[in-house]
Design a protein around this nucleic acid. Structure first.
Lengths: 241, 241
DNA sequence: ATAACACGATTAACATTTGCGTAGAGCTAA
DNA sequence: TTAGCTCTACGCAAATGTTAATCGTGTTAT
């Protein structure tokens, strides 16, 4: 397959729910080292907080859920998540090994049921398989059009307009703008931008960002030397809006 | 007013691939009694015949695949199915129990890996869970004629015309055009196209896409070097329209 | 206030990537 | 066999990305 594409997509976010500190850490580490962004919590109630928002805007892309939790059990979490309308993929992880346990877990809305102890390679493979399946169904593909004042960015079409006029951006310029528009007002350091747009393995100078910002301004701003969209925050970086 | 007939959903069709007659019968019976339509075959080569058609017209909705088959192995079947671009859910069923076996199975494109012996209730639960997850794809059967300007694509007949004139496309060219026409304006990266048209485990170069795009333009465009249908989006991929 | 300094802006030279077009080899089916 | 399809390889040209040197401007210490 071709060279992996630059990180135009934000990293996949996994929620790990497990009360045993050792296991939780092991899992979190294994998944992090595979490039996932891991949010590891130790209780069901904390897990529930991650699903307070709208199902259209889930705070994670996949849940690893231990069943035997003190207080709010894993089954409760699963039920709650589904009842609230989230279709986030869930892999249940449990020491309970009976067929009935598995069936109940799956029927309650989990996508997979993995019995402890298990190997990290299998865990990762199952996560990947499930994410692959979910991605294909476009659950996560609902990229919304981003707007700010008279600027519009169409993620599906890699296209930007200002005041209805097409703006022709290079890939780096486009991704910079995309990152900016995904969180207006937020200040981005050069390093964070490099990480988001160029990828973690970029080894060059952070000054590179300056140049691309300049070019982006050239194409977006009315007066590139007195920008109104992409603002400089001296000593910190840049922000949009 | 007449009573409207109950909206009858077509039954879910499962393909069971298992060489052991007893096991195959047991599985087929268990699944039939759950309301599934079961197509049980005893060899890999027979299974392959079920995937001769177009990925948009799969002959089944889920595959239960034994790995240890005489002749064409289960892994071969899985690989073939994915390589041809089918996204049909696959549950691998195997006596092989090592973590490596499972990881390989999942990485090759299976959605789940179930170790023999297993209970029928769990099997059914896993089928249901997987179908539930895949269901969002839902539009199996839509098969509408796709039009854009003077180009028309007839999915049922795998046929394309431009200005009423028949355009003779190879399978890859046809699939490419089909993917494009299913979402006009949308930008497709080479990798995404490989995934959609070639299947997830295609191991070749993404430059391959370029060449097929070239051929497609050759047959579709008035001036292939100045395309008006299939446009290049430098740094991102291609788009239609 | 002003000089020294730090940081960002700007530009141009240079390097790399990307896409196009072509040719040819491997494979399969008629 | 021939013919069609698929994939890989290579060279070219243009677009894009990176580096580095210089210029401006705001900040700070004296």
């Amino acid at each position: 397959m071709a060279v992996s594409p630059p990180p135009q997509a934000p990293p996949t976010r996994l929620l790990v729910v497990e009360d045993d500190d050792t296991i939780r850490e092991t899992i979190a580490e294994a998944l992090s080292s595979e490039g996932f962004e891991v949010d590891a919590v130790g209780s069901g109630s904390t897990a529930l907080e991650r699903f307070k928002g709208s199902p259209d805007n889930p705070s994670c892309d996949l849940v690893l859920l231990d069943l035997m939790l003190p207080g709010v059990s894993g089954l409760d979490v699963c039920r709650y998540v589904r009842r609230r309308g989230f279709s986030t993929p869930i892999i249940v992880v449990s020491a309970r090994d009976s067929e009935t346990d598995r069936v109940v877990g799956l029927e309650i809305g989990a996508d997979d049921y993995l019995v402890k102890p298990f190997g990290m390679r299998e865990l990762v493979a199952r996560c990947r398989a499930l994410l692959r399946r979910s991605a294909r169904n476009g659950d996560s593909g609902a990229k919304e059009v981003l707007r700010f004042e008279d600027i519009t960015l169409y993620p599906e079409e890699c296209r930007v307009t200002r005041g209805g006029q097409e703006v022709n951006l290079s890939p780096k310029e486009y991704r910079l703008l995309e990152v900016f528009m995904q969180s207006p007002k937020r200040v981005w350091s050069r390093d964070k931008l490099l990480e988001r747009v160029w990828g973690i393995d970029f080894m060059g100078d952070s000054k590179t960002v300056d140049v691309h910002i300049r070019w982006l301004r050239e194409k977006l701003e009315t007066n590139p030397s007195a920008p109104t969209y992409i603002l400089t925050v001296r000593g910190f970086g840049y922000r949009f809006g």
